[in-house]
Design a protein around this nucleic acid. Sequence first.
DNA 1: TTGATGACATAGC
DNA 2: CGCTATGCCATCA
Length: 111
Amino acid sequence: MEAYTQQVITVIQEIPTGTVATYGQIARLAGNPRAARQVARILHSMSQKYDLPWHRVVNAKGEIVIGDPEIAFTQTALLSEEGIEVSEKGKVHLSKYQWNPRDHDSDWMYG
DNA sequence: TTGATGACATAGC
DNA sequence: CGCTATGCCATCA
């Protein structure tokens, strides 16, 4: 278990209910902006070893592009449980449900 | 260690 | 908005 992996897992667990985060976003918060792929890899691998809220993780477009329809369906269902609206194609309104990680660390530059 | 893989992101057309 | 090409690097065999 590398520090980065542990970090990614921590970040994912930081995702509040009712919101979704993108791989790139998690990767950045984890410290590796280029490791967006590894986030996916970590989910796929670790989610079956740890209890990660992987369902709150989507791609940069907010779509559920998972290969297995079962998993995609599960994610859609879970997101629905969180109160998140999901399109027929498994798309989510990032502008409405994307996680705003300013709570993670007060390093915001909008104000 | 080496080689191959992948639940993605970003840039150009 | 969709397709093509490249980068990036942890995980698995």
